[in-house]
Design a protein around this nucleic acid. Structure first.
Lengths: 179, 179
DNA sequence: AGTGAAAAGCGCGCTTC
DNA sequence: GAAGCGCGCTTTTCACT
């Protein structure tokens, strides 16, 4: 049993049977229905509006307005297919810890804007600590990965050090773990 | 100009103007239309079926069958909303490098299966190298993050070392970079 | 496997409470 | 801010190529 998250732990039994506006104050601009919509759409981004409406107990038209509002406010940034990269011929993934040695802001900016466009790049984290960046990439073969690192990272004048860790397994948490 | 990716670099000028079946042998079970569907759905997971059909030059009914097949074969695992965690009250993210000291397989398995369910956990990477796991988490406040690490990682008998790096910025690569 | 037409279901604006 | 109605379009099935 988790005693830590401490978020929204008001202990109130959730009972949304009666009509009328929700009495909950809403920590930010989101009420409980909004949160539920976000949770449902995180689990299944193609869920139909009807189904969403029924699952949250509101009318379809209201649901549509809610979801649109969530998108407009940037709470939901977009929807993406979750693809098995192995099936696309990229069975390898790696995380590459990168240390930057550049002193000019321009050179750092150049690095930061070129990397996301490199082939196989999935995402780039700018982090605190001993390393400056953590790069998540996919590759077709070990050789392709090695070439990627040599040609795009080691060869980059801004990069001082690059350490590659192969990803054996990537477990994505279920969305309801966030609430 | 990238001279590296080396994938599908057959040097053949791509010319899919003529009708009839594609002459391309297809590296795995996916032809060019499948790849395009995957690419489009990665960019916009809620794209309508007829829009997909038109964009790929096939009939809506065919498109539906293609996409279903992609899902059934596991090429597309699912669709998910991309959510701004800050808007949900979790403005902090971190990557935590974890070293495991457990000697029994059971204890490692226990760790691996408990972590994805912990509050705020986004994903868990099992990696090669000096560290065993890399954990991507979100948190409401620095204190909540600290508590998470202390209660769930430092306190875990399987964990020997946990090093937290705050994520300043997370740049997700555009999907077309993978082709 | 790909297509076209027809039926079922959904998106989404408008009006009312 | 939420619900109900209704039109138009999309999705989805099915017989056919």
């Amino acid at each position: 049993m988790d005693s830590v998250d401490g978020l929204y732990s008001d202990g109130m039994p959730k009972d949304r049977r009666s009509p009328g506006p929700a009495p909950r104050p809403a920590p930010d601009g989101l009420d409980e229905v909004d949160r539920e919509l976000v949770r449902l759409l995180t689990a299944d981004g193609r869920m139909a509006n009807n189904a969403l409406a029924e699952a949250t107990g509101i009318a379809p038209s209201t649901c549509l307005a809610r979801v649109r509002s969530l998108r407009e406010r940037g709470v939901i940034r977009g929807f993406h297919a979750d693809v098995d990269l192995g099936a696309l011929g990229q069975p390898l993934q790696a995380l590459i810890a990168i240390r930057i040695g550049a002193h000019s802001r321009d050179e750092i900016d150049r690095f930061r804007s070129k990397v996301p466009g490199l082939p196989g790049v999935l995402s780039l984290f700018h982090v605190s600590g001993a390393n400056d960046y953590l790069l998540h990439v996919s590759a077709a073969t070990p050789d392709a990965l090695r070439e990627f690192v040599l040609d795009h990272l080691t060869a980059d004048p801004a990069v001082v050090h690059a350490e590659t860790s192969l990803i054996f397994e990537h477990i994505r948490a279920t969305p309801d773990a966030r609430n």
